[in-house]
Computed example of a mutant assay.
Amino acid sequence: MRLVVVSAGLSVPSSTRLLGDRLAAATAERTDAEVQVVELRDLAVEIAHHLTNGFPGPRLSSALDAVTAADGLIVVTPVFSASYSGLFKSFFDVLDRDALAGKPVLVAATGGTARHSLVLEHALRPLFAYLRAIVVPTAVYAASEDWGAEGLAGRVERAAGELAGLMGGLRGDLRGGASESVSESVSESVSESASESESELTSASSSEPVLRGTGAALPDVVPFAQQLAALSPSRGA
């Protein structure tokens, strides 16, 4: 199996790269995956050229191929302006739109304060859901004060275990037979819904109205004018 880490860190050394390495090491312990790291800092110029002329350079092309062929993906970005970095987004903008379909992805981010931790749920998770990736339940955020803290190690281990489980259980299935099974399940659900709707319409058109889902007959409805006449004193009394 192949595990690819996409790191959008800009500094050297980079806490973003460090978090990506820790997640990759924890995942590799649970799988037989070979780890490859894609440093977006080194690809910035080629990414910009690809956005303007539509042609990837050799290093960018190799990185895109690695991400497309990976069995699992770890993506890590620093937080810029309460979201992922522009370099991070640009890389996935030039990636083929179907490259991540059905691929297990672990999302992670680094920042100077814990106040930006919701970037994982408000920015990263929606992005990869749009790309039809399978995002692991546990996302990992590391603020400056988290390094060396016990909580970060626990989150790393939990997220790595979830990614390893998806890589082992869904390898080769999501882009093959499983997608057909999902389609069949959807078709069956639609057919069942149509049958239920037809049954309800048939019940509604019968001579005796029936309460939906209960089988009990509706009570007789007496017009208001008839009820009022019954309450009024008889004429000539």
Rank of each mutant, 00 (worst) to 15 (best):
A69W: 01
L118I: 11
R59Q: 15
G72M: 06
D93V: 08
S81A: 11
V119L: 12
L73W: 04
A63I: 01
P58A: 15
V94C: 12
G86Y: 11
A82F: 13
V76A: 15
K89I: 00
D93I: 10
S85C: 04
L120T: 06
G72P: 13
V67G: 04
T77K: 04
A99V: 13
I74K: 02
L118G: 01
A66T: 14
S117Q: 14
A66G: 08
P78N: 07
S90M: 10
F80P: 00
A101W: 07
S90C: 04
F92S: 12
D65A: 15
G86L: 06
A108F: 00
H122K: 09
D71T: 01
A109V: 06
A63L: 05
V79S: 05
A109R: 10
P104M: 01
D98K: 11
S81M: 10
L124N: 04
S83L: 03
P78E: 07
A66S: 15
L106V: 07
L95S: 10
T110W: 07
K89H: 12
H116F: 05
L120D: 07
T110P: 08
R115T: 10
K103D: 02
G112R: 05
D71R: 08
I74H: 01
V94H: 14
A109Y: 05
S62L: 11
R97L: 13
L124S: 05
V105Y: 03
S85V: 02
G72R: 05
A109P: 04
L100E: 08
S62A: 15
K103T: 09
T77P: 03
T113E: 10
F92P: 11
L87S: 01
V79N: 08
